[in-house]
Structures are given as structure tokens and as C-alpha cells.
């Protein structure tokens, strides 16, 4: 029994302390920005978010992200876990679709991309689909008085492709494109 206790403590020190400390040390030296959570700063040097974590945008002059039941509170993470047959989910989707149509009067109901009115898995999804970005262009152009062409160009330059050209889906990082919008 005693040797079991000794073994468990030895392994605990190796796997539970030495290993994470070693990995932290190496990561902090060779890629500190990523190891700290890919935080973004504005020109004044204040932290304004993480590249990887979505933020809530409600101003009509910004690109809007996906539905988040936790309102992008990154101290936690989560979704309401609605089943496909859940009535509350269907009601929420209906009301979000109506809201989207009211904010974007040029859009027809059947054109709404599904990712914009569904809750992401994490509640912190930093991305929307390309369709999801393109469809918001007329609203943002009108609100900011910028031509639609310039906005479509902006989307094109901010388009993130699939990893290695193959894995995952093409997408737009909402926070980054909105920062670029403010710089225009």
C-alpha cells in the first residue's frame, strides 16, 4: 500500500506539476502573445478583447455576430442546449428572424443565413459565415455612409480560409472586421 502512495505522489509531481509548468515555460518564451490568450489592444494600448473570443455587437453600424444566450460573457461559456424540437428555441429563432428583417429591410426571409439566428456551441463564437457578413453590407453601408463595394472588399480581405485549404469552413472574424471598419 505504501509503495502505491509513493508511486501516486511521484506521478502526480511529474504529470500534474512538472508537465504543465514545463509547457507553460516553453510557450511563454517562444509564443507569449498566443499563450496569454491572443489579446488585442487599441492604439492607446488598452485591451479591447481577444481575437478568438466573440463580442456582443448591437450598433447597426457594426457587423453583428451570432446569437449567444450568455451574451458573450467570456467569464463562462455555454448555450441553452435546446433540442431541435424545443418550442422556446423555435420561438427565439422566429423573433430573431423578425428582428433581423426589421434591421435589414432589403433582405428577404429565405435569404437569412442560418448561422446568424442560431445559438453557437460556445456562446462565444468569434466568427460568422461569409454569407452572414455579405448580407449585412447594405445596412452598414447606409448607416456609415460608405459604399457597398468598399465593404465587400473589406470582407474579401478579412476572409479566413479553411486550415491548409481543406479543414473547417471559410469565415469572417467579427471583432477584427469591426475594428477595421472603425479604422476606415
Amino acid at each position: 500500500m505504501l509503495k502505491n502512495i509513493r508511486l501516486v505522489f511521484v506521478l502526480l509531481v511529474i504529470c500534474g506539476l512538472a508537465y504543465p509548468l514545463l509547457l507553460t515555460g516553453v510557450s511563454q518564451v517562444i509564443m507569449p502573445a498566443k499563450a496569454e490568450g491572443s489579446l488585442l489592444e487599441n492604439k492607446a494600448g488598452e485591451k479591447i478583447g481577444s481575437r478568438l473570443i466573440g463580442q456582443s455587437f448591437s450598433d447597426p453600424g457594426y457587423f453583428h455576430g451570432r446569437v449567444s444566450s450568455i451574451n458573450y460573457d467570456a467569464a463562462g461559456s455555454g448555450t441553452p442546449n435546446y433540442s431541435p424540437s424545443n418550442k422556446e428555441m423555435i420561438e427565439r429563432t422566429k423573433s430573431d428572424m423578425a428582428k433581423f428583417l426589421a434591421e435589414n429591410p432589403t433582405v428577404k426571409k429565405a435569404e437569412i443565413p442560418a448561422d446568424l439566428v442560431t445559438n453557437s456551441g460556445s456562446g462565444l463564437d468569434p466568427n460568422i459565415s461569409l454569407q452572414g457578413a455579405n448580407i449585412q453590407v447594405p445596412r452598414i453601408a447606409k448607416e456609415r455612409g460608405i459604399s457597398e463595394e468598399r465593404l465587400y472588399d473589406l470582407i474579401n480581405t478579412h476572409k479566413e480560409g479553411r486550415s491548409l485549404g481543406l479543414f473547417g469552413e471559410p469565415r469572417i472574424n467579427v471583432l477584427e472586421i469591426n475594428i477595421a471598419l472603425d479604422d476606415m
Binding site: 509547457l23 507553460t24 510557450s27 511563454q28 509564443m31 498566443k34 499563450a35 496569454e36 490568450g37 491572443s38 489579446l39 488598452e46 485591451k47 479591447i48 478583447g49 481577444s50 481575437r51 478568438l52 473570443i53 463580442q55 456582443s56 455587437f57 448591437s58 450598433d59 457594426y62 458573450y72 460573457d73 467570456a74 467569464a75 463562462g76 461559456s77 471583432l175 469591426n178 475594428i179 472603425d182
Partner: peptide, 27 residues
């Protein structure tokens, strides 16, 4: 980590979002 997964012992990061709200980011 090279892809952006954090590895830090710093506590939750407090930031002010583009729209001016407070956001605490667990890491």
C-alpha cells in the same frame, strides 16, 4: 499553443469591448 490555445497562469483577462462593455475572459 501555436494555433492560439492559451497556456498561462495569469488570471481572467478584463477588457473593454469595442462597444464599450466590460468583458472578462477566462483563460
Amino acid at each position: 499553443v501555436s494555433q492560439g490555445v492559451p497556456q498561462t497562469f495569469s488570471s481572467t483577462a478584463a477588457v473593454t469591448t469595442v462597444e464599450g462593455a466590460a468583458q472578462n475572459i477566462a483563460r
